[in-house]
Amino acid sequence: MIGQRSAWLLIAPLLLVLLLSFVVPLVLLLPTSFQEYQPGQGMVAGSFTWENYLRIATDGYYREVVLRTLGLGLGVTVLCLLTGYPVAYLIVRGHPRWRLPLTLLVIFPLMLNLVVRSFGWIVLLTNRGVVNNLLLDLGLIERPLKLMFNMTGLLIGLTHIYLPFMVLMLVAALQNVPRDVEAAAATLGSSRTHVFWSVTLPLTAPGIIGGSILVFVLTISALVTPRMLGGPTYQVMATLIYDEYMQLLDWPSGSALSFALAASTLVIIWISSRMTRRWAGMA
């Protein structure tokens, strides 16, 4: 076991970086989020208001963006989980010969620049893009499908980008499932499907929850892809925060949104870690 002193030493570099680059700016930002904003003049010095926070809940537009962001996070997480689990299962349980190529295939998108990848999706998904042209030429559709500047485009693009994180987490979780435990279930009369549902899946719960938290948090805070595939009008919280700061110079509003985003992230992580404990029956 590592002693308390060494434990602190080991964690010190990370703590220091987090303190300087995350906690301090956050604390500095907190007063800003409670200040009044006058269009054309900027922040009103010495003012205090709840308005910036209240607006997120009451203003229809803000509320829509918040719900859309959370919905997007949920959707991307579910899509990553559903498409990622079979891949992870194949990597861990398939023929060893396939392990390396499959892992590389999963990691490969991470080697490309985010902007390039998003541009790739634009080429594919736009009204006169590859997908629509193909479907039109095949006569399967009469009018181009709307694949961009809406939920569909964001779901496709973000799922593609965050899938590797999910797969890698699930691979680690699956590798931790002892084969003997699955074999034991089989000898006790469990079919392969039943072994999966009653043993493999619950034992990979920590990986499922871990991967889901990661993908969810990355998705709701993603900026570049939503901006490129959602355009200037289809906003999520991250793009809205960016616009509040950079376009409207409404810092108080942007800060309030940032805190709301951070708070909802923390709440979700807390809920899901409690869920893991209950579901997997272990700490």
Binding site: P178, A183, A184, A186, T187, S190, S191, V199
Partner: peptide
């Protein structure tokens, strides 16, 4: 036949208990 159709009991070196049950 797959193991689940054989009506056997197997005791493992690693115990192989279901940790979540």
């Amino acid at each position: 036949l797959p193991p689940n159709k054989r009506n056997i009991g197997l005791v493992f070196q690693s115990y192989a208990l279901f940790p979540h049950m």
